[in-house]
Write a protein that binds this DNA or RNA. Structure first.
Length: 177
DNA sequence: ATAGCGATGTTCT
DNA sequence: GAACATCGCTATA
């Protein structure tokens, strides 16, 4: 556990913009830099998977900070979260978009196209090869790892997208030039 | 550029 | 049965 996960889920979410996410899967290493994330908070946030308590799907969301939470979206895509709260709380940051740093050829191959490689949570998982098999693994010692930003980043807070409840909260954080 | 729509696992009513 | 933290294809402009 590093200082990267200290503070509330909203504070951590803002801090994660500009951080580096790497995966070592299928013998191939890929690395990206996060540019868009969203905070989802425990029992007070109606849009959060943790809002109604622990289930088979979201149980890794209730683990300790630094755990990877992966779920299937619309029965089709995988989406990845960084768990931030203490064990038992259920707070996590959804990883929504990034820019490629390393292994872009492998990313293009996994995505099956040349553009729009990392501009969405399902795309980001497909690009890094993340699936439910990595759910619950450690972001410090597992196949998918997270490292703090190397340089300061300008971040703007906006409303979260793609949800119908809790839309008023400015818990989406995007990098701005 | 924007709109509509199908795919489909898990959760909820 | 319906909703959902999505995506890519197709159609229309």
């Amino acid at each position: 556990m590093t200082e990267l996960y200290e503070g509330t889920v909203v504070e951590v979410a803002r801090r994660l913009v500009g951080s580096q996410l790497t995966s070592l899967l299928g013998g191939v290493r890929t690395a990206v830099r996060l540019t868009e994330v969203e905070a989802y908070g425990g029992t007070e946030d109606p849009a959060s998977h943790a809002y109604r308590g622990e289930t088979a799907r979201n149980r890794s969301m209730f683990r300790e900070a630094g755990t990877l939470y992966v779920y299937r979206s619309y029965g089709v895509h995988w989406c990845a979260n960084v768990v931030t709260g203490p064990s038992g709380v259920g707070e996590a940051v959804l990883l929504r978009a990034a820019e490629p740093l390393e292994g872009i050829e492998e990313i293009r191959r996994r995505r099956g196209r040349e553009d729009h490689l990392l501009d969405g949570p399902g795309k980001l998982c497909q690009a890094l090869g993340i699936t439910g098999a990595q759910d619950g693994t450690s972001l410090s010692s597992g196949p998918v790892r997270l490292e703090p930003p190397e340089k300061p980043v300008n971040v703007e807070a906006t409303r979260r997208v793609g949800i119908t409840k809790g839309t008023e909260l400015p818990w989406r954080f995007v990098e701005v030039p």
